[in-house]
Nucleic acid binder design. Sequence first.
DNA 1: CCGTCGATGTCAGTGACTGACATCAATCGA
DNA 2: TCGATTGATGTCAGTCACTGACATCGACGG
Lengths: 187, 187
Amino acid sequence: MSRWEPNARERLSEAALELYAERGFEQTTVAEIAGRAGLTERTFFRHFGDKREVLFGGAEKLLDLLAETVAAAPAGAAPIEAVAAALAAAGRLIRDPVHSRRRQAVIDANAELRERELIKLASWAVTLTAALRDRGAPEGVAHLAAETGVAVFKVAFGRWLAEHGEADMPALVRDCFAELKGVTAGL
Amino acid sequence: MSRWEPNARERLSEAALELYAERGFEQTTVAEIAGRAGLTERTFFRHFGDKREVLFGGAEKLLDLLAETVAAAPAGAAPIEAVAAALAAAGRLIRDPVHSRRRQAVIDANAELRERELIKLASWAVTLTAALRDRGAPEGVAHLAAETGVAVFKVAFGRWLAEHGEADMPALVRDCFAELKGVTAGL
DNA sequence: CCGTCGATGTCAGTGACTGACATCAATCGA
DNA sequence: TCGATTGATGTCAGTCACTGACATCGACGG
């Protein structure tokens, strides 16, 4: 018999999402989250760096997936192709429209959380850029392809949410990349 | 004779940039900034919403410039062309490499400030999207062109800083857009 | 000369986050 | 088997960002 209930981290995450959804991010104190999870404020901060972090767990695995997918693209594939493949793969992880919408509603309702979301996407771009460089893409091209790709993903995710998650994320990502080609044809 | 020294806001901005550069953002308290400016902490928070905001003044003028430049683009111009023109115009405001590098060094050294920077760029994308929609661009195209354009600008600004601000920002922005065409040709 | 307005100061909070130290079940090594 | 160690948690005191309420007092219009 353990001294404490297991899965403290998950209990904190669930409690936080519930409270943020119920009464808003700012109106929720960390002490309340910890209380609902049967823990103390101090323990919350041992599991999460700050009050927002509790909504953004598991980022490393995703970064690894992006890097691996870029690395695994055929040697002949253009950088933007490799990025498209990686982001389509990332899209495959997005499957639960109910949870995604709930979480996104909380994030959209608060500026601090939107910032955190942007940081997350920026870290994707950094990872993609590095992975492209490792394949031999020139620095400039890598950077541009990565940033552009993340921009495309943002648009695709917005559409997926707008249509209640009925469409297939990887397919939507692909569609948006195809559209990008049309858009840049105007240059 | 006024009761207080004039330009409180500017004095606060200068004091903040100095202190952030000297000892870092986190190691500087708002009370210290206010003290150096001959004011109190409470007054600081009357001029700036938070401790970071002091580095990001004058954002509205820039948003107006972006919107106006998009609106002023020739009727026949493609959305991405209008975005390129707007961002080149924005680049024209970036002229002082010494100040820019000093400020950017402070921002790059701190995660909270980097977040704030990303929010700023995201607001550019929102403004550009709206301006494109007003010109009759379809929602999807507007969104994609705006996000992509901002991604290109990020790359251009990074290069401008990397080469010590010797190049002309508008020209660099143009170059990066041209490169984007090549990058998306790989799709 | 008076009233009000606007920029600032003062003060007392709340709440996020941190460091130092205590607790005690589980586990490991002798 | 038992004592030492470890690791997750609790407790407590403190710092600092940020806010609301109210006071101050020169400037300025009437």
